[in-house]
Amino acid sequence: MNDTARTIARDGFVIEPEDRRAIEHERDHYEQPQAACIEALKIVQRRHGWVPDAAIPAIAEVLGVGPADVEGVATFYSLIFRQPVGRHVILVCDSSSCFLNDYEELRDALSAELGIGFGQTTADGRFTLLPVCCLGACDRGPTLMIDDCTYGPVAPGDVADLLEGFA
């Protein structure tokens, strides 16, 4: 691949041409390019699993905005990861209805099974554990999301079986 087909930032982060096209396509949905910032971060995250610091100026360049404008956004939103995450991200609902349905027991069972707490990744790089706001599935609490799927109710005793399905 030649260099002109790629966007290379100063410190060498590469936005794949396909991702660049996707970001440019998103940009056209809005009145100003800054609006595509969150989607651009998500596009980069989809490929790399997270958003490394070096990606920020590269995204800024595609959008034609300042790196500070991208960085400010990247640090604000909870679903933009600024550290490497595991192959699967577990989002555990810690809001009120799940709390009333014994969320804390589920959280403890997950921690025990994985040997990690919130904000951590298992040593084998398989799972990252994070809390999340009400998943809008409160009729089936306690709930959690693994990657793109929501599950509920998840009893502490279900945890081992559930996680087994994720390589």
Binding site: L135, A137, D139, R140, T143, C149, T150, Y151, G152, P153, V154, A155, D158, D161, L162, G165
Partner: peptide, 10 residues
């Protein structure tokens, strides 16, 4: 597996 995927249901 005993855990089910969530589906919105009226």
């Amino acid at each position: 597996m005993s855990v089910t995927r969530y589906h919105s249901q009226l």
